[in-house]
Structure formats: structure tokens, C-alpha cells
Nucleic acid binder design. Structure first.
Lengths: 158, 158
DNA sequence: CCGAGATCGTTAGCAAGGCTAACGATACCT
DNA sequence: AGGTATCGTTAGCCTTGCTAACGATCTCGG
């Protein structure tokens, strides 16, 4: 996946006004994910498949439509992604006995294992850097994450 | 782009151990960018094109190869992206008088304008939420961003 | 000075992931 | 029972990745 706007953060230090802060946060988040994404390759799964698998594993059996909505993707796209995962033996299609229009998607044991391994590998790099921080920085980071979650909630509410 | 692991953050509050913190940070960053990405659509430019344009605007004239490396993409891919941007009138191909193998890519005035508008639109949503924070939270956010940049630098150094 | 090799961008051709449109099967509701 | 709504799939298109192969150009050793 391509880099996104490395060049946006023209200054490194934090600033006080909202627009600049928003800009820096945006840029920092992009950098973070770009770096972590490199670790994804080793899982052998493409990003969309990994993401869909993740939703299925953590969200329990879902219908294809629910999965498509969760992944912000159209049903035909999800059909193909699920077909790929199914061929790889990571998920199963299960018919609903009540409503025969539905197909429930369920993770296999292999799917759960593959996801867990991939996730661990991906966050490992970040976790190593985090654990090098001292106690004060760790606390500040925790506070920052909390604020980030607040911002996310505020934006979602709009 | 699809959602990535909304379900990873099983708890909302910050925690102290590095692995959990890393995990929550990962998840929060994903959520942030996913929300902001929705604003991209209105620019009429796809993500790869927007990103490449951004590098060209901020990084000055670059050769196609340099641009490809900056975007972590192979030359043939960049050839096509640049061709698309060129047809949209956002960049220009310029031959190098010294070395005729090179093609320099330069942003047009329209390209600069389109990028500026797109960026403003994208960060607007975030900036609004940020400006609703009180002074203490603003300071904490700034500190968090600073830490994020440190983490990014640490990971990049590895 | 010139021919061998390196470098650069493009072309050709493939796979994956996104979309819309259209369809068949099933469920629901009056 | 019949009309309508919903669900997943199929078909067909575009964009974005890739590798392989090529033509043009530069560079450097002899």
C-alpha cells in the first residue's frame, strides 16, 4: 500500500491551535499505520481478507451482508473476499435454517489461529517501541490514546 | 479502503502494559483514518493519486522513479498514476535536458489548488472535534502526538 | 571513440479489489 | 395467492498492484 502524505507534517513539534494539531495527528496516524502495514505481508493474507477475517473471528458468525457493512464494502465485493477466505480454509459458509436467503460466515479453527499470529506479528514492532518508554511517557501515551478515542467518538456522532 | 480491526479494542480505557497500549493505539489510529478517509471521496481523486500528487506538490519536481520509491510502488504503477494525473491536468511531465532518460514530474497550479482544497476538507472534521477540547486536553493531545512521532521515529530506525 | 553494461521509463499482460446492474431464490405481508 | 422486499450471487467494468520484457539513453573500460 502506498504512502500517504509523509510530507504533510512540515514541523515536528506539537502546536496549540486545533487545525495544526489535527493536521499533525492525521499525519502521525498515517505514518504509524504505514509502518505497521509492512508487517502484514508475512501473514500471506491481503489487507481486505485479513480485515474481514478479523471481523468474523471477533464478531462471531455474521451474515454476508452484515460483514459487507462492517467492512464498508458492497455485497458483491464481500462475496469474493469470503470465497477467497473459504478456499483458504479460514472461514465457512453456513446456511441459516430459519431464513434460507442468508449465509452466515464463521471462522474455522485455522482462521482463528492465522489471525492471532498475524495480529501479534503486526503489533510486535509497535509494542517493542512502546515498552522502551519510561513511566511518565507511558502514562502520557495512555492519556493521548484516551483522547483519540474521544475524538473518534465525537466524529462518529456527527 | 475497508475497515481494519474495529473489534481489536475490546476495552476502551487506556492500560499500562506496552502490548495492550500498542494494541489500543493501533486500533485508535485505524478508526481515526477510516473516518477521515470518507472525506476523501469528495476530492474526486483516488487515494493513490491524491497521495502521489501530494508528494509532488510538497516535494517539488521529482523524477518518476523517485516518486515511485517515495510512494513505495513499482515504476510501472507510478507511470499509470502519473498518466492519470496528467490527463486530469494536475501534473506535467518534463524532460531532463541533462539526462534524457529521466522524466521530471511537476505539479500544475490546478494540481496545487486541488490538493490544498482536498486536504482542508479532509482534516476539517477532525479539526472541529479537536477545537471542542478544553485547554488541558489540548495540551495532553499535543503531548500524545509528540510521543507518537517518537514512536514512529523509533520504529523507522529499526 | 566505441561497444558493453547499467539505468530509466514505458508497454504488455496478469491478479485482486472496488463498483453498478441485473437475477434467482426466499421471505413477508395484505 | 400474489406482489414486494431482501439477500447473495453473477457478470462486466475500472483502478491499482505486480513481473517481464523492451527501447532509449547514459557511462565507462579498453
Amino acid at each position: 500500500m502506498p504512502k500517504r502524505e509523509a510530507h504533510v507534517a512540515l514541523s515536528d513539534g506539537p502546536a496549540s491551535d486545533a487545525a495544526t494539531l489535527a493536521d499533525q495527528l492525521h499525519s502521525a496516524a498515517i505514518h504509524l499505520l504505514r509502518t505497521l502495514r509492512k508487517e502484514d505481508d508475512s501473514s500471506g493474507l491481503s489487507a481486505p481478507r485479513l480485515s474481514a477475517l478479523s471481523v468474523v473471528v471477533f464478531g462471531g458468525p455474521l451474515t454476508l451482508g452484515q460483514l459487507a457493512r462492517a467492512e464498508q464494502v458492497r455485497p458483491p465485493t464481500m462475496t469474493r473476499i469470503v470465497t477467497g477466505l473459504e478456499k483458504a480454509g479460514l472461514v465457512r459458509r453456513i446456511g441459516d435454517p430459519r431464513d434460507h436467503r442468508l449465509t452466515r460466515i464463521q471462522a474455522t479453527a485455522k482462521g482463528q489461529r492465522v489471525l492471532a499470529e498475524g495480529r501479534a506479528r503486526r503489533v510486535k514492532l509497535l509494542a517493542e517501541s512502546v515498552s522502551a518508554l519510561d513511566q511518565a511517557k507511558l502514562a502520557a501515551l495512555g492519556r493521548g490514546i484516551q483522547l483519540l478515542n474521544e475524538l473518534n467518538a465525537a466524529m462518529r456522532a456527527k
